[in-house]
Computed example of a mutant assay.
Amino acid sequence: MTDLAAVVADRYRDASRTARGFIRGKLRGDPVVPALLALGGAHSLGHVLDLGCGRGQLALALLLSGRADRVTGLDLDTGKIAAAQAAAGDLPARFDVADVAAAPIAPCDTLMLIDVLLQLAPPSQDALLARIAAAAPARILIRAFDPERGWRSSLGFAMERARRVLGGDLGLRGAVAPRPLREIAAPLEAAGYAVAVTPCWTGTPLPNVLLVAQR
Rank of each mutant, 00 (worst) to 15 (best):
Ile142Gln: 03
Ile114Phe: 01
Thr204Lys: 06
Ala194Asn: 11
Arg179Ser: 11
Arg143Phe: 02
Ala134Asn: 09
Gly203Cys: 04
Pro137Arg: 06
Pro107Thr: 05
Glu148Thr: 11
Leu170Cys: 10
Gly203Pro: 08
Ala103Glu: 10
Ala175Met: 01
Cys200Phe: 01
Ala88Thr: 13
Arg131Asn: 08
Ala194Pro: 03
Ala213Gln: 03
Pro205Glu: 02
Val197Ser: 08
Pro180Ser: 13
Val116Glu: 09
Thr198Arg: 15
Ser124Lys: 05
Asn208Val: 04
Ala175Trp: 09
Phe145Asn: 04
Pro207Phe: 04
Pro205Trp: 02
Asn208Met: 02
Pro207Glu: 00
Gly156Ile: 00
Leu129Ile: 12
Pro187Gln: 08
Leu166Ile: 12
Arg149Leu: 13
Leu91Asp: 14
Asp90His: 15
Ala138Pro: 00
Ala93Met: 10
Leu172Lys: 08
Leu128Val: 06
Pro147Lys: 06
Asp115Cys: 02
Trp151Phe: 09
Gln214Lys: 14
Asp126His: 09
Val165Phe: 13
Thr198Cys: 03
Leu155Val: 12
Ala130Phe: 00
Cys108Gly: 11
Ser124Asn: 12
Cys108Phe: 11
Ala127Thr: 10
Ala158His: 05
Pro123Ser: 12
Leu120Tyr: 07
Ala134Gln: 14
Leu111Trp: 04
Gly171Cys: 14
Ala106Gly: 05
Ile105Pro: 06
Ala186Asn: 06
Leu129His: 11
Ala101Leu: 05
Thr198Trp: 05
Val212Arg: 15
Gly168Thr: 14
Asp96Cys: 09
Arg152Met: 06
Leu118Met: 04
Glu183Gln: 14
Val197Met: 11
Pro187Glu: 07
Ala134Leu: 01
Ala103Ile: 05
Leu113Gln: 01
Leu206Arg: 00
Gln125Asp: 02
Ile132Gln: 09
Arg161Lys: 15
Ala93Thr: 11
Ala162Ile: 11
Ile142Arg: 03
Pro207Met: 00
Arg131Thr: 09
Pro122Leu: 08
Leu211Ala: 02
Val116Pro: 04
Pro187Trp: 06
Ala186Val: 01
Val165Tyr: 05
Ala185Lys: 10
Arg179Ala: 14
Arg152Val: 00
Ile132Asn: 07
Asp169Cys: 07
Asp90Pro: 06
Ala101Tyr: 07
Gly89Leu: 12
Glu160Asn: 04
Glu189Leu: 12
